[in-house]
Design a protein around this nucleic acid. Structure first.
Length: 1126
RNA sequence: GGGCCUGUAGCUCAGGUGGUUAGAGCGCUACACUGAUAAUGUAGAGGUCCGUGGUUCGAGUCCACGCAGGCCCA
């Protein structure tokens, strides 16, 4: 029986399926974890995918990346528990359900109950779980699929509630408001998703105003600010400038009142605000009513000089008076000079940027108080001004005699959601226009014009949306900003820039985490409040909720628990049905919001173990994570929520190492999408190429954090070039090992130092490779590791070691040298299976089985082995350098032989090569492998030219990095001098160790180490050189060399004939050759023994009368030969 | 609009701390090998290092401003 199975063809997808089956049957994954019981843990957190869609090829990337480090750490001796998980809540699920049912949000609670709706969501969200599990298995991602965490389960939600409760107890959970898109016509907030639907943004013409804000303490001086929403001007409470922008004061006249004034604006906007034709006009020539208005810049300053400037309130409405620092100039990081005046008007209630900027600078906004004393904006939810502003505007209309299409009452000033008045009616005016006219009349408007821009509209009502403050619950992340930043610096980010840049900047500009979502399918906010908002309660566990329910039942607020006789489902609508009793005995209702799904996933370190209610020991042993990996798009998603919760509640990082991987694009660099049809089906790809080549390609082709241009041809190339070469190497080994009945036995192996030089070299290279892979993997650099493995396998092991060692395998009987060759090749292959096993888990396990089929000490799987590590004692750098020289010299000789002017094939032996050597070390290193070089390039001798020979011609180059520091600007002169040196100067600096270079402004002394001396020329010879190695080839052909060449050619032709005749390797033959010229005849007689040995010929006869032979093409001549099988 | 990433041969990618002539694989061309053979080896051709300025004796590398593609956030 064969010890090592040989394969004609390898079916990689089949290997994937077979090994997967083997793993399942033998429970290998579990064993790989249980094996390490008691060992140090290496913790990995699975970022939960959502199973409501089918997995794509990019999931293969993400999951392979997760898998390899877990496998690697397992080999290294850690216990790596990997719990799978599913993300189940969120808007995409809701939208999918709505699409399938053909309903909208408005139908929920009407045509479909919340209960039915949520039931539908629950069914939908796990719809493709089977496909996901299938892919996970097929690509070899080892993760516990039997006991995953699922974010909709009651235990999971309970853990979330306890976390929220802890935040609440730390006063980090509060109710506030945020500026959100709001549809006044529909009376509802809109998600950004709804806003991004096609057709939502439309070009509309709005009245825009450049308003004049009068500077306090200066006569007729105004700050100009532009807005496309004049209705927000009564709510103005500050103006923002860019600190580094240039601003000017310009003397001019108001175009509507013709009054002289000084305008303040960005310098870059002068051209837009004034007509350049008026530039030459003198201010004194101006007559009221002139079309061209002269202007003159009278001062220039930076934005930062304006900080703190105070101005008068634009609309001094009684009831709207604000304390300092309202009505001052502040800094806004987003201010540009691309439009407007370079100064931005801020209204806290109606712009997210405005809100953020004003909060940052502690500037109050314009609000009035409702009956309960809460701040409310001056525009109501129907989209019209409150009477406080309405009265003011109505009065101003009268005062200025403004005629409109109708009489405006105090309740008629809609700012959006205009009533359906006829816009073509005579004197039609909307609120924006009325405001503009008032401003014009009061010398407060510098410019009023129609402006066309893109503005979002409500997809249901087609009316423009309003940015409006809506109530929300927040986590006060800003309170922990410094700590978040500080702990982030301890995280090892791959790539680093994502941590310092994208994530770091995000933390630097942190705002409080808006937790509220007005939806149905998600984790409910566990906060109950009295109707007047004076009392509230945050529930932190199911037990506590039940206790409170008991109290409420006792009080008579509830008849019974909504879960009586049912399984506890903490979703809506059940939680909404719960009315609790406050400390003062009032009814408390649940705050209707759900929480951001990102809190679900950010809480997985705790909730996956139902901590703190269960599994405290497991949680503690597995926190924080040593490693996580997810797409870079998760930076502000999962990476942030993990980090935020960990820092705020546990004063810890949630993960120590993280890879943020890039996207998988199609081969042209476009985003893959099912719609465009360029998405790659992972199942199809797996079926065609198997999992290993796919994983290997994805990890080796580009760094995972760069986007991957996925190309199937690349997968094919990896398979052919890398896996194919490795497989060939194995087949080669198996073929001969079986013939020789070789079985590897470590205890009987020839000690490495007694093996051939070539063996020692490849073993040394192997150890170097192991160290390299280990260091790359410890640094979470998979790409570097895979590339190093490929280089070793293809270039060193297959193309050099196997090629040069081939003859040792097929010659003669088993002896120590042959055994050493087998052992060496075997050890390389076995090591490779382990090195590669994290990346190509199926193929390597298969190869491991093939290699160890007859071994005594084999394990069930490569994945159950212990990492072998590099044996530093087997690394021989000197030998590696030596071989490197030999490889380069061989390559140079090949290159010379191939030179069209020379054109001598390798089979033709040549007498010698000359190698200039400038030091003893190089000479020794080359000499060491002289035999190898000689046989590789078919030459008889290597000769060295050194200082002792007068043939050696040296050349000299400046050592730039060294000289640059010393010389600086004088470099170019010195370099020119050095380049002009000849024999004399080189000899001088070599002898004295220094030389003096004359320059125009004095002499400079150069030291030997400041120049590089090499030899690149041998007069009269054909030379080739590469990186300091130079070789000359003696192309003289003597008769003897020619004869040998002929003999070798003949062997080559006869071997072909043997093959054509279908002879077996061991078959013997007799050769008859027709007589030819003297040279050929001599070759035949002189090299007869050689020819016979090579061709297994018992006799070689030169026969003058041979006529029925085969005519051989010997390149330069023809020869008749006859071969007979014995 | 802001932050971040990417841009090097036809394609996919390498190119610490600036250093004279920018590398690899695939593909292409030619040759070799024919006892790893539906393999393999060797060599050759192929580059405005996205552009424009700047710093420097010297820039693919550092700086600034752009351009193109991408991600995230507004």
């Amino acid at each position: 029986m064969k010890k090592y199975q040989e394969y004609k063809q390898v079916d990689y997808p089949q290997i994937g399926e077979d090994i997967l089956q083997y793993w399942k049957e033998n429970d290998i994954f579990n064993k790989s974890v249980l094996n390490r019981d008691g060992a140090e843990t290496f913790t990995f957190f699975e970022g939960p995918p959502s199973a409501n869609g089918t997995p794509g090829i990019h999931h293969v990337m993400a999951r392979a990346l997760k898998d390899i480090f877990c496998r690697y750490k397992t080999l290294k001796g850690f216990q790596v528990k990997r719990k799978g998980g599913w993300d189940t809540h969120g808007l995409p699920v809701e939208l999918q359900v709505e699409k399938e049912l053909g309903i909208t949000k408005e139908d929920i609670g009407k045509s479909i109950s919340v209960e039915e709706y949520n039931q539908k969501c629950r069914e939908t969200v796990m719809r493709f779980k089977n496909e996901w599990d299938d892919l996970t298995e097929k690509i070899g991602y080892w993760v516990d699929l039997d006991d995953p965490y699922i974010t909709f389960e009651a235990d999971y939600i309970e853990s979330l509630w306890s976390l929220l409760r802890r935040l609440y107890d730390k006063n980090l959970l509060y109710k506030g408001y945020t500026i959100q898109p709001f549809s006044p016509a529909a009376g509802t907030g809109l998600s950004s998703h709804e806003l991004n639907q096609p057709g939502c943004y439309r070009d509309v013409k709005d009245t825009s105003v450049t308003a004049q804000f009068k500077l306090k303490g200066e006569e007729n001086t105004f700050i100009l600010a532009w807005t496309t929403t004049p209705w927000t001007l009564p709510s103005n409470s500050a103006l923002a400038i860019g600190e580094n922008l240039d601003y000017v004061k310009v003397k001019t006249f108001n175009p509507y009142t013709y009054e002289p004034m000084t305008a303040i604006m960005a310098k870059a906007r002068i051209g837009a605000m004034f007509n350049p034709k008026a530039k030459e006009i003198s201010l004194t020539d101006y007559q009221a009513g002139d079309k061209l208005i002269p202007y003159e810049v009278v001062a220039e300053f930076k934005g930062r000089d304006m900080l703190g400037w105070e101005y008068e309130q634009l609309f001094p409405i009684s009831g709207i008076a604000l304390p300092h620092p309202a009505f001052t100039v502040i800094s806004g990081d987003y201010v540009t000079t691309e439009d407007g005046t370079g100064i931005v008007h801020l209204a806290k209630a109606f712009g997210a940027d405005d809100f953020r900027t004003l909060v940052q600078h502690n500037v109050p906004g314009v609000f009035v108080q409702d009956e309960l004393g809460n701040d409310i904006p001056v525009v109501d939810k129907q989209g019209k001004f409150l009477p406080v502003v309405g009265e003011y505007l109505a009065a101003k209309m009268q005062e200025h005699g403004i005629l409109a299409h109708k009489t405006f009452g105090v309740d008629d000033f809609y700012v959006k959601n205009y009533p359906n008045d006829d816009e073509n009616a005579a004197d039609y005016k909307n609120t924006d226009i009325i405001i503009s006219i008032i401003l014009k009349n009061e010398n407060k408007a510098f410019k009023v014009e129609k402006y066309e821009h893109s503005y979002p509209h409500c997809w249901r009502t087609d009316k423009p949306i309003l940015y409006y403050p809506l109530e929300s619950w927040f986590i006060k992340t800003t309170a922990y900003k410094d700590r978040l930043v500080e702990l982030n610096k301890t995280i090892n980010w791959k790539p680093e820039a994502t941590g310092t840049g994208r994530f770091g900047n995000w933390l630097e500009n942190l705002v409080d985490w808006n937790l509220s979502r007005s939806r149905f399918w998600g984790t409910p906010l566990p906060i109950w409040r009295t109707e007047d908002g004076t009392e509230e309660m945050c529930i932190g566990s199911v037990a506590e909720l039940q206790q409170e329910i008991e109290k409420s039942i006792a009080k008579g607020f509830l008849e019974k628990s909504p879960w009586e006789g049912k399984e506890m489902d903490l979703h809506r609508p059940y939680v909404d049905d719960v009315i609790l009793v406050s400390a003062k005995g009032q009814k408390m209702f649940r705050e209707p919001d759900l929480i951001d799904v990102w809190f679900d996933s950010g809480a997985m370190p705790y909730a996956q173990w139902h901590y703190p209610f269960e599994n405290e020991d497991i949680f503690k042993a597995n926190y924080p994570a040593d490693y996580i990996a997810e797409g870079v798009d998760q930076t502000r998603g999962w990476f942030f929520t993990l980090h935020a919760i960990a820092v705020m509640l546990f004063d810890s990082v949630a993960f120590k190492n993280v890879i943020a991987n890039g996207l998988v694009l199609d081969k042209n660099g476009n985003k893959m999408s099912k719609r465009l049809g360029n998405a790659v089906d992972p199942f199809k790809t797996l079926k065609e190429y198997g999992p290993d080549a796919l994983r290997w390609y994805m990890l080796s082709n580009a760094n995972p954090w760069d986007n991957l241009k996925f190309n199937l041809e690349g997968v094919a190339e990896v398979q052919r070039r890398f896996f194919g070469t490795l497989q060939n190497t194995y087949n080669f080994f198996a073929l001969y090992a079986n013939l020789d009945h070789f079985v590897y036995d470590k205890s009987k192996a020839v000690p490495v130092n007694q093996r051939a030089e070539l063996d020692q070299w490849i073993i040394s290279k192997l150890q170097t490779l192991i160290a390299e892979v280990e260091s790359a993997m410890d640094n979470y650099d998979a790409t570097k590791a895979t590339r190093a493995i490929m280089n070793f396998t293809v270039d060193q092991l297959s193309n050099w070691y196997v090629r040069l060692a081939r003859k040792r395998f097929w010659r003669g009987d088993m002896n120590a040298d042959k055994q050493a060759a087998y052992e060496t090749l075997y050890e390389c292959l076995l090591s490779l299976t382990q090195l590669m096993s994290s990346f190509a888990p199926f193929y390597t396990d298969w190869l491991y089985k093939n290699l160890t089929a007859s071994s005594k000490n084999k394990l069930e799987s490569i994945h159950l082995t212990d990492w072998a590590g590099a044996d530093a004692g087997l690394i021989n750098k000197d030998l590696e350098e030596s071989m490197d020289l030999a490889q380069r010299i061989s390559s140079l000789v090949h290159s010379l032989r191939k030179n069209p002017k020379i054109g001598i094939k390798v089979r033709q032996p040549l007498q010698r090569i000359l190698v200039p050597v400038l030091n003893e070390k190089t000479k020794r290193q080359i000499q060491h492998l002289e035999e190898l070089i000689k046989s590789e390039v078919n030459i008889k001798a290597v000769e060295y030219i050194d200082d002792a020979s007068d043939v050696l011609v040296k050349s000299v180059k400046p050592n730039l990095p060294v000289l640059g520091k010393k010389l600086g600007p004088k470099m170019r002169f010195v370099v020119a001098a050095i380049n002009s040196w000849g024999k004399v100067e080189i000899a001088e600096i070599e002898k004295n160790g220094k030389i003096t270079v004359p320059l125009e402004d004095g002499n400079i002394e150069l030291l030997l180490e400041e120049v590089l001396i090499s030899s690149q020329d041998i007069p009269g010879w054909s030379v080739a050189s590469d990186q300091g190695v130079t070789v000359a080839l003696d192309v003289t052909l003597t008769d003897e060399l020619r004869q040998e060449g002929i003999a070798r050619d003949l062997v080559n032709r006869i071997q072909n004939l043997r093959k054509d005749m279908g002879l077996e390797v061991q078959d013997k033959i007799r050769i008859k050759v027709a007589k030819h010229d003297e040279l050929v005849n001599s070759a035949l007689s002189n090299f007869a023994p050689y020819i016979q040995t090579e061709t297994q010929a018992l006799s070689l006869e030169v026969n003058g009368s041979l006529t029925d032979g085969t005519i051989l093409d010997m390149d330069d001549f023809e020869l008749m030969v006859k071969i007979e099988k014995v």
